[in-house]
Nucleic acid binder design. Structure first.
Length: 424
RNA sequence: GGCGAGGUAGCGAAGCGGUCAAACGCAGCAGACUGUAAAUCUGUCGCCCUAGCGGCUUCGAAGGUUCGAGUCCUUCCCUCGCCA
Protein backbone atom coordinates (compact mmCIF):
# COMPACT_ATOMS: atom_id res chain seq x y z
CA UNK A 1 0.00 0.00 0.00
CA UNK A 2 1.09 3.55 -0.47
CA UNK A 3 2.72 5.30 2.38
CA UNK A 4 2.23 8.86 3.40
CA UNK A 5 5.51 9.82 1.85
CA UNK A 6 4.59 8.29 -1.51
CA UNK A 7 1.35 10.16 -1.32
CA UNK A 8 3.08 13.45 -0.61
CA UNK A 9 5.54 12.86 -3.42
CA UNK A 10 2.78 12.13 -5.88
CA UNK A 11 0.98 15.29 -4.88
CA UNK A 12 4.08 17.32 -5.50
CA UNK A 13 4.16 18.32 -1.87
CA UNK A 14 7.75 17.41 -1.19
CA UNK A 15 10.09 20.22 -2.06
CA UNK A 16 12.84 18.96 0.16
CA UNK A 17 13.09 16.34 2.87
CA UNK A 18 15.67 14.90 5.18
CA UNK A 19 17.30 11.61 4.36
CA UNK A 20 15.25 8.66 5.51
CA UNK A 21 11.86 10.28 6.19
CA UNK A 22 10.20 7.93 3.76
CA UNK A 23 11.41 4.89 5.64
CA UNK A 24 10.46 6.35 8.96
CA UNK A 25 6.92 7.13 7.82
CA UNK A 26 6.57 3.68 6.34
CA UNK A 27 7.71 1.84 9.43
CA UNK A 28 6.30 3.62 12.45
CA UNK A 29 3.62 5.90 13.74
CA UNK A 30 5.21 9.30 13.70
CA UNK A 31 4.27 12.40 15.60
CA UNK A 32 4.79 15.46 13.44
CA UNK A 33 4.12 19.13 13.68
CA UNK A 34 3.65 22.28 11.66
CA UNK A 35 3.62 25.79 13.03
CA UNK A 36 1.26 28.69 12.38
CA UNK A 37 2.20 32.15 13.52
CA UNK A 38 -0.68 34.31 14.67
CA UNK A 39 0.17 37.37 12.63
CA UNK A 40 -3.47 37.85 11.64
CA UNK A 41 -6.80 36.85 13.10
CA UNK A 42 -7.36 34.31 10.37
CA UNK A 43 -5.43 31.86 8.28
CA UNK A 44 -5.49 32.36 4.55
CA UNK A 45 -5.41 29.90 1.67
CA UNK A 46 -1.63 29.79 1.76
CA UNK A 47 -1.86 28.13 5.16
CA UNK A 48 -4.01 25.36 3.78
CA UNK A 49 -1.02 23.45 2.55
CA UNK A 50 0.57 22.79 5.95
CA UNK A 51 -2.83 22.46 7.61
CA UNK A 52 -3.92 19.84 5.12
CA UNK A 53 -0.54 18.16 5.36
CA UNK A 54 -1.26 17.56 9.03
CA UNK A 55 -4.64 16.15 8.11
CA UNK A 56 -3.11 13.85 5.50
CA UNK A 57 -0.62 12.72 8.07
CA UNK A 58 -3.39 11.86 10.44
CA UNK A 59 -5.28 9.96 7.75
CA UNK A 60 -2.26 7.77 7.36
CA UNK A 61 -2.27 6.99 11.04
CA UNK A 62 0.33 9.42 12.23
CA UNK A 63 -0.21 11.93 14.99
CA UNK A 64 -0.32 15.61 14.07
CA UNK A 65 0.47 18.56 16.25
CA UNK A 66 -0.28 22.10 15.20
CA UNK A 67 1.63 24.80 16.98
CA UNK A 68 -0.05 28.12 17.19
CA UNK A 69 2.88 30.38 17.71
CA UNK A 70 1.83 32.59 20.57
CA UNK A 71 5.49 32.77 21.55
CA UNK A 72 7.22 32.99 18.19
CA UNK A 73 4.52 35.38 17.04
CA UNK A 74 5.89 37.86 19.55
CA UNK A 75 9.15 37.92 17.63
CA UNK A 76 8.37 37.57 13.94
CA UNK A 77 9.85 35.11 11.50
CA UNK A 78 12.27 36.74 9.07
CA UNK A 79 11.90 33.82 6.62
CA UNK A 80 10.54 34.96 3.32
CA UNK A 81 10.31 38.52 4.52
CA UNK A 82 12.39 41.27 3.03
CA UNK A 83 11.70 43.72 5.80
CA UNK A 84 11.61 43.83 9.53
CA UNK A 85 8.12 43.29 10.85
CA UNK A 86 6.24 45.50 13.20
CA UNK A 87 5.61 43.83 16.48
CA UNK A 88 2.06 42.98 17.41
CA UNK A 89 0.76 43.57 20.89
CA UNK A 90 0.44 40.67 23.24
CA UNK A 91 -3.35 41.01 23.33
CA UNK A 92 -3.50 41.00 19.57
CA UNK A 93 -1.46 37.86 19.35
CA UNK A 94 -3.55 36.08 21.91
CA UNK A 95 -6.74 36.99 20.10
CA UNK A 96 -5.27 35.87 16.79
CA UNK A 97 -4.03 32.64 18.25
CA UNK A 98 -7.47 31.80 19.57
CA UNK A 99 -9.06 32.40 16.17
CA UNK A 100 -6.47 30.36 14.33
CA UNK A 101 -6.78 27.52 16.74
CA UNK A 102 -10.47 27.34 15.94
CA UNK A 103 -9.82 27.28 12.21
CA UNK A 104 -7.21 24.56 12.45
CA UNK A 105 -9.57 22.41 14.41
CA UNK A 106 -11.73 22.00 11.31
CA UNK A 107 -9.06 19.98 9.60
CA UNK A 108 -7.96 17.77 12.44
CA UNK A 109 -9.49 15.00 14.43
CA UNK A 110 -8.99 15.28 18.16
CA UNK A 111 -10.83 12.16 19.13
CA UNK A 112 -8.67 9.52 17.53
CA UNK A 113 -7.75 6.80 20.00
CA UNK A 114 -4.30 6.08 18.65
CA UNK A 115 -3.35 9.30 17.02
CA UNK A 116 -5.41 12.23 18.23
CA UNK A 117 -4.44 15.64 16.93
CA UNK A 118 -3.13 18.27 19.28
CA UNK A 119 -2.99 22.00 19.07
CA UNK A 120 -0.42 23.56 21.34
CA UNK A 121 0.79 27.07 21.92
CA UNK A 122 4.52 27.63 22.13
CA UNK A 123 3.92 30.55 24.46
CA UNK A 124 3.51 27.80 27.06
CA UNK A 125 7.25 27.27 27.11
CA UNK A 126 8.69 30.25 25.30
CA UNK A 127 6.75 32.57 27.55
CA UNK A 128 8.12 31.05 30.71
CA UNK A 129 11.68 30.09 29.92
CA UNK A 130 14.08 32.66 31.28
CA UNK A 131 16.68 34.26 29.11
CA UNK A 132 19.70 32.70 30.75
CA UNK A 133 18.26 29.23 30.60
CA UNK A 134 17.36 29.72 26.99
CA UNK A 135 20.79 30.94 26.03
CA UNK A 136 22.39 27.99 27.77
CA UNK A 137 19.95 25.35 26.47
CA UNK A 138 19.46 26.53 22.93
CA UNK A 139 21.84 29.35 22.15
CA UNK A 140 24.93 27.48 23.20
CA UNK A 141 24.39 24.93 20.46
CA UNK A 142 24.39 27.35 17.58
CA UNK A 143 27.31 29.31 16.32
CA UNK A 144 26.62 32.72 14.94
CA UNK A 145 28.44 31.52 11.84
CA UNK A 146 25.77 28.85 11.38
CA UNK A 147 22.95 31.30 11.85
CA UNK A 148 24.45 33.79 9.44
CA UNK A 149 24.53 31.15 6.76
CA UNK A 150 20.80 30.62 6.92
CA UNK A 151 19.18 31.99 3.83
CA UNK A 152 16.54 33.96 5.74
CA UNK A 153 19.21 35.77 7.71
CA UNK A 154 21.74 36.05 4.96
CA UNK A 155 19.38 37.70 2.54
CA UNK A 156 18.48 40.29 5.09
CA UNK A 157 22.09 41.03 5.84
CA UNK A 158 22.45 42.12 2.27
CA UNK A 159 19.63 44.63 2.49
CA UNK A 160 20.21 48.16 3.64
CA UNK A 161 17.84 47.83 6.55
CA UNK A 162 19.55 44.70 7.87
CA UNK A 163 17.90 42.50 10.44
CA UNK A 164 17.24 43.18 14.07
CA UNK A 165 18.67 41.05 16.80
CA UNK A 166 15.11 40.09 17.65
CA UNK A 167 14.32 38.53 14.32
CA UNK A 168 17.79 37.09 14.11
CA UNK A 169 16.89 35.08 17.19
CA UNK A 170 13.81 33.58 15.63
CA UNK A 171 15.69 30.59 14.36
CA UNK A 172 16.64 29.61 17.89
CA UNK A 173 13.08 29.85 19.08
CA UNK A 174 11.78 27.57 16.41
CA UNK A 175 14.56 25.11 17.02
CA UNK A 176 13.69 25.20 20.69
CA UNK A 177 10.04 24.49 19.83
CA UNK A 178 11.00 21.37 18.00
CA UNK A 179 13.07 20.21 20.94
CA UNK A 180 10.20 20.87 23.32
CA UNK A 181 7.77 18.90 21.19
CA UNK A 182 10.26 16.10 20.92
CA UNK A 183 10.59 15.95 24.67
CA UNK A 184 6.90 16.32 25.41
CA UNK A 185 5.29 14.27 22.67
CA UNK A 186 8.09 12.41 20.94
CA UNK A 187 7.57 14.61 17.92
CA UNK A 188 10.13 13.57 15.32
CA UNK A 189 9.09 15.38 12.17
CA UNK A 190 8.42 18.97 11.25
CA UNK A 191 6.54 20.06 8.17
CA UNK A 192 6.47 23.53 6.68
CA UNK A 193 6.73 25.68 3.63
CA UNK A 194 9.99 25.69 1.74
CA UNK A 195 10.95 28.95 3.43
CA UNK A 196 11.00 27.04 6.70
CA UNK A 197 13.83 24.74 5.73
CA UNK A 198 16.44 26.70 7.61
CA UNK A 199 14.35 26.87 10.76
CA UNK A 200 13.51 23.19 10.57
CA UNK A 201 17.05 22.01 10.10
CA UNK A 202 18.07 24.14 13.05
CA UNK A 203 15.58 22.21 15.17
CA UNK A 204 16.85 18.93 13.85
CA UNK A 205 20.40 19.95 14.70
CA UNK A 206 19.38 20.94 18.20
CA UNK A 207 17.65 17.64 18.82
CA UNK A 208 20.64 15.75 17.51
CA UNK A 209 22.99 17.63 19.79
CA UNK A 210 20.87 17.61 22.90
CA UNK A 211 19.11 14.24 22.60
CA UNK A 212 21.27 12.33 20.17
CA UNK A 213 18.26 11.58 18.00
CA UNK A 214 17.75 12.04 14.28
CA UNK A 215 14.62 14.08 13.76
CA UNK A 216 13.25 14.85 10.33
CA UNK A 217 11.84 17.60 8.21
CA UNK A 218 9.76 17.87 5.08
CA UNK A 219 9.13 21.14 3.32
CA UNK A 220 6.51 21.82 0.72
CA UNK A 221 6.90 23.97 -2.36
CA UNK A 222 5.93 27.57 -2.58
CA UNK A 223 2.71 27.71 -4.52
CA UNK A 224 2.91 29.63 -7.74
CA UNK A 225 0.36 30.68 -10.28
CA UNK A 226 0.88 30.21 -13.98
CA UNK A 227 0.18 33.87 -14.62
CA UNK A 228 2.82 34.95 -12.16
CA UNK A 229 0.41 36.50 -9.69
CA UNK A 230 1.09 35.71 -6.09
CA UNK A 231 -1.03 32.77 -5.05
CA UNK A 232 -3.86 33.53 -2.70
CA UNK A 233 -4.36 37.13 -3.65
CA UNK A 234 -7.38 38.61 -5.33
CA UNK A 235 -8.46 42.13 -6.04
CA UNK A 236 -9.76 42.26 -2.52
CA UNK A 237 -6.50 41.12 -0.97
CA UNK A 238 -5.73 37.81 0.64
CA UNK A 239 -8.22 34.98 0.51
CA UNK A 240 -8.97 34.20 4.14
CA UNK A 241 -10.43 31.11 5.67
CA UNK A 242 -12.54 33.27 7.92
CA UNK A 243 -15.97 33.61 6.35
CA UNK A 244 -16.30 37.08 7.79
CA UNK A 245 -13.25 38.26 5.92
CA UNK A 246 -13.75 36.32 2.72
CA UNK A 247 -17.31 35.18 2.21
CA UNK A 248 -17.84 31.53 1.31
CA UNK A 249 -19.13 32.71 -2.03
CA UNK A 250 -15.94 34.61 -2.80
CA UNK A 251 -13.88 31.78 -1.48
CA UNK A 252 -15.65 29.42 -3.86
CA UNK A 253 -15.18 31.86 -6.71
CA UNK A 254 -11.50 32.16 -5.98
CA UNK A 255 -11.01 28.47 -6.62
CA UNK A 256 -13.39 28.37 -9.52
CA UNK A 257 -11.28 30.98 -11.29
CA UNK A 258 -8.15 28.87 -11.15
CA UNK A 259 -6.08 28.91 -14.30
CA UNK A 260 -6.24 25.75 -16.44
CA UNK A 261 -2.53 25.31 -16.04
CA UNK A 262 -2.78 25.40 -12.26
CA UNK A 263 -5.88 23.40 -11.60
CA UNK A 264 -4.40 19.90 -11.59
CA UNK A 265 -1.54 20.75 -9.24
CA UNK A 266 -4.05 22.52 -7.01
CA UNK A 267 -6.30 19.48 -6.91
CA UNK A 268 -3.33 17.55 -5.66
CA UNK A 269 -2.35 20.21 -3.17
CA UNK A 270 -5.69 21.18 -1.75
CA UNK A 271 -8.02 18.20 -1.95
CA UNK A 272 -8.08 14.65 -0.69
CA UNK A 273 -9.22 13.29 -4.03
CA UNK A 274 -7.38 10.16 -5.05
CA UNK A 275 -5.25 9.55 -8.11
CA UNK A 276 -8.00 8.17 -10.28
CA UNK A 277 -10.27 11.09 -9.61
CA UNK A 278 -7.57 13.63 -10.29
CA UNK A 279 -6.34 11.88 -13.41
CA UNK A 280 -9.90 11.88 -14.70
CA UNK A 281 -10.18 15.59 -14.10
CA UNK A 282 -6.88 16.19 -15.80
CA UNK A 283 -8.25 14.50 -18.89
CA UNK A 284 -11.31 16.71 -18.68
CA UNK A 285 -9.17 19.84 -18.62
CA UNK A 286 -7.61 18.83 -21.91
CA UNK A 287 -10.73 17.48 -23.54
CA UNK A 288 -13.18 20.22 -22.66
CA UNK A 289 -11.51 23.11 -20.90
CA UNK A 290 -14.50 25.37 -21.38
CA UNK A 291 -16.65 23.33 -19.04
CA UNK A 292 -14.08 23.88 -16.31
CA UNK A 293 -15.05 20.69 -14.63
CA UNK A 294 -11.80 20.45 -12.73
CA UNK A 295 -12.19 23.98 -11.41
CA UNK A 296 -15.70 23.23 -10.24
CA UNK A 297 -14.57 20.15 -8.38
CA UNK A 298 -11.66 22.02 -6.87
CA UNK A 299 -13.90 24.84 -5.70
CA UNK A 300 -16.41 22.41 -4.29
CA UNK A 301 -13.86 20.29 -2.47
CA UNK A 302 -11.94 23.11 -0.86
CA UNK A 303 -15.00 25.11 0.04
CA UNK A 304 -16.49 22.03 1.65
CA UNK A 305 -13.37 21.54 3.71
CA UNK A 306 -13.29 25.09 4.93
CA UNK A 307 -16.90 26.19 5.05
CA UNK A 308 -18.94 23.00 4.91
CA UNK A 309 -21.22 21.44 2.33
CA UNK A 310 -24.18 23.74 2.84
CA UNK A 311 -22.10 26.74 1.94
CA UNK A 312 -21.04 25.05 -1.26
CA UNK A 313 -24.63 24.59 -2.33
CA UNK A 314 -25.27 28.24 -1.77
CA UNK A 315 -22.13 29.32 -3.55
CA UNK A 316 -22.93 27.17 -6.54
CA UNK A 317 -26.44 28.53 -6.75
CA UNK A 318 -25.21 32.05 -6.41
CA UNK A 319 -22.63 31.46 -9.09
CA UNK A 320 -25.04 30.19 -11.68
CA UNK A 321 -27.54 32.88 -10.82
CA UNK A 322 -25.00 35.61 -10.99
CA UNK A 323 -23.81 34.79 -14.45
CA UNK A 324 -26.57 33.07 -16.30
CA UNK A 325 -29.98 34.19 -15.19
CA UNK A 326 -32.04 37.29 -15.19
CA UNK A 327 -32.31 37.91 -11.51
CA UNK A 328 -35.00 40.53 -11.76
CA UNK A 329 -37.39 37.76 -12.79
CA UNK A 330 -36.75 35.67 -9.73
CA UNK A 331 -38.69 35.62 -6.50
CA UNK A 332 -37.30 37.96 -3.90
CA UNK A 333 -36.57 35.15 -1.42
CA UNK A 334 -34.31 33.34 -3.86
CA UNK A 335 -32.32 36.42 -4.63
CA UNK A 336 -32.05 37.24 -0.97
CA UNK A 337 -30.79 33.79 -0.14
CA UNK A 338 -28.22 33.81 -2.88
CA UNK A 339 -26.80 37.18 -1.99
CA UNK A 340 -26.88 36.60 1.71
CA UNK A 341 -23.14 36.81 2.11
CA UNK A 342 -22.54 39.52 -0.42
CA UNK A 343 -21.80 42.94 1.07
CA UNK A 344 -24.97 44.89 1.48
CA UNK A 345 -26.10 48.35 2.44
CA UNK A 346 -29.43 49.53 3.71
CA UNK A 347 -30.78 52.63 2.10
CA UNK A 348 -33.95 54.38 3.18
CA UNK A 349 -36.70 53.70 0.65
CA UNK A 350 -37.76 57.31 0.72
CA UNK A 351 -34.42 58.27 -0.77
CA UNK A 352 -35.66 56.61 -3.93
CA UNK A 353 -39.04 58.25 -3.76
CA UNK A 354 -39.23 61.41 -5.82
CA UNK A 355 -37.35 60.38 -8.95
CA UNK A 356 -34.76 57.91 -7.76
CA UNK A 357 -31.11 58.17 -6.80
CA UNK A 358 -28.44 59.03 -9.33
CA UNK A 359 -26.64 55.87 -10.22
CA UNK A 360 -23.24 57.47 -9.71
CA UNK A 361 -24.23 58.65 -6.26
CA UNK A 362 -25.55 55.26 -5.35
CA UNK A 363 -22.35 53.48 -6.33
CA UNK A 364 -20.18 55.88 -4.36
CA UNK A 365 -22.57 55.80 -1.41
CA UNK A 366 -22.43 52.05 -0.94
CA UNK A 367 -18.69 51.99 -1.43
CA UNK A 368 -18.61 50.02 -4.67
CA UNK A 369 -16.37 52.82 -5.92
CA UNK A 370 -14.22 54.98 -3.65
CA UNK A 371 -15.32 58.29 -5.13
CA UNK A 372 -17.95 59.71 -7.36
CA UNK A 373 -15.41 60.42 -10.06
CA UNK A 374 -14.42 56.79 -10.01
CA UNK A 375 -18.06 55.74 -10.03
CA UNK A 376 -18.75 57.91 -13.03
CA UNK A 377 -15.82 56.46 -14.91
CA UNK A 378 -17.04 52.99 -14.15
CA UNK A 379 -20.49 53.70 -15.45
CA UNK A 380 -19.15 55.35 -18.58
CA UNK A 381 -16.93 52.41 -19.35
CA UNK A 382 -19.86 50.07 -19.05
CA UNK A 383 -18.72 48.32 -15.92
CA UNK A 384 -21.85 48.73 -13.85
CA UNK A 385 -24.85 46.47 -13.81
CA UNK A 386 -28.12 46.93 -12.00
CA UNK A 387 -29.91 43.65 -11.47
CA UNK A 388 -27.57 42.17 -14.06
CA UNK A 389 -28.41 44.75 -16.70
CA UNK A 390 -25.69 47.10 -17.81
CA UNK A 391 -26.27 50.68 -16.78
CA UNK A 392 -24.02 52.82 -18.94
CA UNK A 393 -25.62 56.22 -18.54
CA UNK A 394 -23.98 58.29 -15.82
CA UNK A 395 -27.09 60.44 -15.68
CA UNK A 396 -29.20 57.37 -15.03
CA UNK A 397 -31.24 57.06 -11.89
CA UNK A 398 -32.35 54.10 -9.85
CA UNK A 399 -35.96 54.22 -8.78
CA UNK A 400 -38.05 52.12 -6.52
CA UNK A 401 -39.51 50.40 -9.57
CA UNK A 402 -36.06 48.98 -10.28
CA UNK A 403 -35.95 47.19 -6.97
CA UNK A 404 -36.72 43.49 -7.00
CA UNK A 405 -39.90 43.00 -5.03
CA UNK A 406 -39.74 46.68 -4.27
CA UNK A 407 -36.95 46.19 -1.77
CA UNK A 408 -33.75 44.89 -3.29
CA UNK A 409 -31.32 46.25 -5.84
CA UNK A 410 -28.38 44.16 -6.95
CA UNK A 411 -25.54 46.39 -7.99
CA UNK A 412 -22.61 44.79 -9.74
CA UNK A 413 -19.25 46.14 -10.80
CA UNK A 414 -17.42 44.25 -13.48
CA UNK A 415 -17.79 40.51 -13.45
CA UNK A 416 -17.24 39.73 -9.85
CA UNK A 417 -17.94 42.45 -7.37
CA UNK A 418 -21.52 42.57 -6.24
CA UNK A 419 -23.24 44.77 -3.72
CA UNK A 420 -26.79 44.43 -2.54
CA UNK A 421 -28.92 47.38 -1.57
CA UNK A 422 -31.87 46.82 0.71
CA UNK A 423 -34.56 49.43 0.78
CA UNK A 424 -35.89 50.03 4.22
C1' G B 1 29.15 64.25 15.56
C1' G B 2 31.49 64.83 10.18
C1' C B 3 30.92 63.96 4.88
C1' G B 4 27.89 62.26 0.89
C1' A B 5 23.18 60.64 -1.46
C1' G B 6 18.11 61.07 -1.27
C1' G B 7 12.64 62.02 0.10
C1' U B 8 7.54 62.95 -6.45
C1' A B 9 0.78 59.57 -7.00
C1' G B 10 -0.16 52.08 -4.35
C1' C B 11 5.08 50.74 -5.88
C1' G B 12 9.35 51.84 -9.08
C1' A B 13 10.95 56.04 -11.64
C1' A B 14 11.19 60.81 -14.90
C1' G B 15 11.16 65.93 -13.96
C1' C B 16 16.43 70.95 -13.64
C1' G B 17 11.11 78.15 -13.48
C1' G B 18 5.64 78.44 -17.13
C1' U B 19 2.26 74.17 -21.83
C1' C B 20 2.64 69.55 -14.52
C1' A B 21 -2.56 66.56 -11.69
C1' A B 22 2.85 65.61 -13.09
C1' A B 23 6.33 61.24 -18.71
C1' C B 24 7.18 55.98 -18.43
C1' G B 25 6.82 50.95 -16.24
C1' C B 26 4.38 47.73 -12.75
C1' A B 27 0.18 46.87 -9.87
C1' G B 28 -5.15 48.25 -9.86
C1' C B 29 -10.03 49.14 -12.26
C1' A B 30 -13.33 48.71 -16.55
C1' G B 31 -14.27 47.20 -21.68
C1' A B 32 -13.51 43.92 -26.15
C1' C B 33 -12.37 38.78 -27.24
C1' U B 34 -13.53 34.27 -24.37
C1' G B 35 -14.76 29.51 -20.90
C1' U B 36 -16.52 33.69 -14.55
C1' A B 37 -9.50 30.89 -17.68
C1' A B 38 -4.86 32.53 -19.99
C1' A B 39 -2.77 35.61 -23.60
C1' U B 40 -3.81 39.95 -26.38
C1' C B 41 -5.89 44.67 -27.46
C1' U B 42 -8.49 49.34 -25.72
C1' G B 43 -9.71 52.83 -22.12
C1' U B 44 -8.85 54.50 -17.29
C1' C B 45 -6.06 55.27 -13.01
C1' G B 46 -5.74 62.81 -6.98
C1' C B 47 -10.69 65.00 -5.47
C1' C B 48 -15.27 67.72 -6.93
C1' C B 49 -19.01 69.31 -10.25
C1' U B 50 -23.18 72.04 -14.39
C1' A B 51 -17.77 66.87 -17.14
C1' G B 52 -15.06 71.79 -19.45
C1' C B 53 -8.78 73.66 -23.32
C1' G B 54 -13.79 73.73 -15.63
C1' G B 55 -12.82 74.17 -10.17
C1' C B 56 -9.91 72.43 -5.98
C1' U B 57 -5.84 70.09 -3.15
C1' U B 58 -0.93 67.54 -4.14
C1' C B 59 5.49 66.41 -5.44
C1' G B 60 8.91 65.13 3.10
C1' A B 61 7.44 69.94 6.47
C1' A B 62 7.45 75.16 7.18
C1' G B 63 8.89 79.71 5.37
C1' G B 64 10.94 82.78 1.26
C1' U B 65 12.31 84.58 -4.00
C1' U B 66 9.16 85.15 -8.49
C1' C B 67 3.84 87.55 -12.40
C1' G B 68 4.48 82.09 -11.95
C1' A B 69 7.89 76.70 -7.97
C1' G B 70 7.88 69.56 -8.14
C1' U B 71 11.66 72.63 -10.24
C1' C B 72 15.53 78.36 -7.08
C1' C B 73 16.83 79.96 -1.62
C1' U B 74 16.51 79.16 3.95
C1' U B 75 15.42 76.28 8.11
C1' C B 76 13.62 71.84 9.94
C1' C B 77 12.21 66.48 9.80
C1' C B 78 13.16 61.63 7.96
C1' U B 79 15.87 57.59 5.21
C1' C B 80 20.31 55.45 3.37
C1' G B 81 25.74 55.06 2.72
C1' C B 82 30.76 56.19 4.30
C1' C B 83 33.68 58.06 8.37
C1' A B 84 34.03 59.01 13.79
Amino acid sequence: MTTLFDELLWRGLVYDATEGVGDLLASARVTAYAGFDPTASSLHVGHLLPALALARLQRFGHAPIAIVGGGTGMIGDPSGKSQERTLLSREQIEANAAAIREQLSRFLDFDGVDNPARIVNNADWLGTVDLLTFLRDAGKHFTVNYMLQKESVNRRLETEAGISYTEFSYLLLQAYDFLQLFDRYGCALQIGGSDQWGNITAGIDLIRKRRVYKAHGVVMPLITTASGVKFGKTEAGAVWLDGERTSPFKFYQFWLNTDDRDVVPYLKYFTFLDRDAINGLETAVHASPETRTAQRVLAREVTTLVHGASQVVRAERASSLLFTEDIAMLPLEDVLAVFEDVPSTEVAARDFEPEGIGIVDLIARVGLAPSKSEARRLVQSGGVYINNRRAADPQGRVTRQDAIGGELVVLRKGARETHVIRLT
